[in-house]
Each structure stands twice: as C-alpha cells, then as structure tokens.
C-alpha cells in the first residue's frame, strides 16, 4: 500500500505537469481554434522547441547530480561560431561539425574539472565560464554574422534540420531520439544510477564505491557536447550565425528542467518531466500571441506557470 502511495506521488508529479500541458493546449485551442487545430502550428513548434529541449535533456543529469551549469548557452554560442566559421572557411561541414562538437565537449570538461578537481562550486564556476565563452564569441566574431546558406541541401543539413517527408523537421526527431537515449541511460544504465546516487548523497555514494568525481565530470562534459550539438542545429536551421545565438536560452532551459519536476536538491528528476517542461515553455509564447494577447504577456505568464507548477510539485512532494 505504502509502495503504491509512493509511486503515486512521483507519478502524480509527472501527471500534474502533463495536466498543465493539456490545460494549456486546451486554452490555446479554445482561444484560437483555427490556429491550434491546424498542423502548421505544430510543425513550427517542432522546428523551434528542439534546440532548448536538447540542452534541457542534457542539463537534467547535471541538476540531478546536485550541480548547476549556467555556461551552456555560451558554450552553445562558441560552438555555433566554430561550426559556422569553419564551414565557411574550410567548406567542409562535416569537419566543422566534428571540431565544433569537440569544442563543446572540452568546454564541458573544463567545467567538470574546475568543479571536481579545484573544488569551486559549479554555480560560480559556470558564471565564470559563461562570461568567458560569451566574451570569446564576441571577440572572435567581432560582432559580425556568418551566412550558412551554402550548406543548404547538403546531406548534413538534410539529416540534421531537413524536413522529413517535406514537413517534419529533422531536429524534432533528434530531440525525441535523444530524449529516449537519456531516458535509457538514466533509468536503465549503471551510469544513470550513479548519477542519482551522487546527487542524492555524495558521501554515501563515495563510500559505496561510486566514482563520484568521474560521474560529475562526465555529466558536465556531456552537457557541453549537447550544447554544441544544439548550437549546430540552430546555425543550420537559421542558415545564419549571429554572435548572439544561444542568448536567452539560459533561464528558459533551467525553468523547463525545474518545471519538469527535477529537484534542486539533487537525486530526483525525470526525462519525461523535462520533455514536457520544454514543450510548455516552448509553446507558451506562440500560444499567447495566437490567442490574441500581446507578446508583452509572455514573461508574465511564464512566471505564473513556473511559480504555480513548482509550488504544486513542492506541495505534492511534501505531503507524501
């Protein structure tokens, strides 16, 4: 009985966030049936939401580990610049892709090493590296954009951001595939278990032989990698690189993860929750505008949705 109760509460939490999503879309459909009953809106969601989703997925294990990363949008920015400028200068997008991914990986690794080996709290380290990478982007790109139009039609372009069957944006499939991958690792792989234990109680985990330092470093590293991946997708989707790409993702991505029920105290969190959180955050703005409110309302409603949802989470968790 107890068990059913317990399961129920985590379950309830996930369903409560799902309920928020359903309620929101019901409101959208009632407010703007013509827009929200036609597929176009959903195609557009599928092309815009994946960038944030990929980063939120990769951020989830970091937060489960009781760490935080504020530098991923800047890592995304520097990797996006790397990809754009290398594609333009070498004409070899595959090479650019690989180098850009490695850049992201190394930037993540640097965070991990500073946190684990030097012992600086991740909140502080990543404020530092956030400024650092953002600054480098500005220095390198000298505030100029880079066009990526020549890449259109390459296989790389098609497989990353092409339109499958002419309609479904490839990035949406990538996001769904990665969500499955992350789910698999967190729930069905040893590494995932180690992540939960590290975030739950690092001393216990250490005593039981879990390589907590390695776990943390890896977790930061993968976030760097996937931030780079998201940056490349964004470049390709826009066919243009701006020095500001990546900006504005920070707080929305973190909000999406928390909205999904991941605990700020570590040891708890689900990929399903994060995924739903991303859809909510990602669809709010268009939804608000479609139902006829001015865009000025967006932030206010973001705020309300976040505060109310996480309050519900907190209360649900406390009761059990």
């Amino acid at each position: 009985m107890l068990k059913r109760y317990l399961k129920l509460s985590e379950f309830k939490l996930q369903w409560s966030i799902f309920a928020v999503l359903v309620a929101l879309f019901t409101l959208f459909i009632m407010g703007a049936p013509r827009i929200f009953l036609a597929p176009d809106m959903y195609y557009s969601f599928m092309s815009t939401i994946p960038f944030m989703t990929i980063m939120a997925l990769a951020l989830t294990p970091v937060i489960i580990c009781k760490e935080i990363d504020l530098s991923f949008p800047s890592v995304m920015g520097i990797s996006a610049w790397m990809f754009a400028s290398l594609s333009a200068s070498t004409g070899n997008p595959t090479l650019a892709l690989i180098i850009s991914l490695i850049t992201g990986l190394l930037a993540g690794l640097l965070n991990g090493i500073l946190v684990v080996k030097v012992g600086i709290p991740s909140l502080i380290v990543t404020i530092g590296t956030m400024f650092f990478w953002k600054g480098l982007v500005l220095v390198f790109s000298a505030a100029g954009g880079i066009t990526l139009v020549p890449l259109r039609g390459t296989i790389l372009f098609q497989s990353l951001v092409g339109r499958i069957g002419g309609v479904i944006p490839a990035q949406a499939l990538w996001a769904v595939g990665l969500a499955f991958l992350f789910w698999l690792i967190l729930n069905r792989h040893k590494f995932g278990t180690h992540i939960y234990f590290t975030g739950d109680n690092i001393e216990s985990a250490r005593m039981m032989g879990i390589p907590v330092n390695k776990v943390k470093i890896l977790v930061f590293t993968q976030l760097g990698f996937f931030a780079a991946f998201a940056g490349i997708l964004l470049d390709l989707e826009m066919s243009y690189y701006w020095p500001t790409s990546g900006e504005g993702y920070l707080l929305e991505t973190i909000a999406a993860v928390f909205l999904g029920g991941t605990s700020a105290f570590g040891g708890m969190g689900t990929i399903f929750g994060t995924f739903i959180g991303c859809i909510i955050i990602g669809s709010l703005e268009s939804g608000i505008i479609s139902v006829g409110l001015s865009g000025y309302w967006t932030n206010l409603i973001y705020g309300l949705v976040i505060v109310i949802s996480v309050s519900i989470h907190s209360i649900l968790r406390r009761r059990t």
Partner: peptide, 10 residues
C-alpha cells in the same frame, strides 16, 4: 557504515 550510506530518495 555508521552513516548507513544509503541514497534515501532512491
């Protein structure tokens, strides 16, 4: 261990 070394939320 004295501290029990359990991951309490798991």
């Amino acid at each position: 261990y004295q501290e029990r070394a359990l991951g309490e939320q798991q």
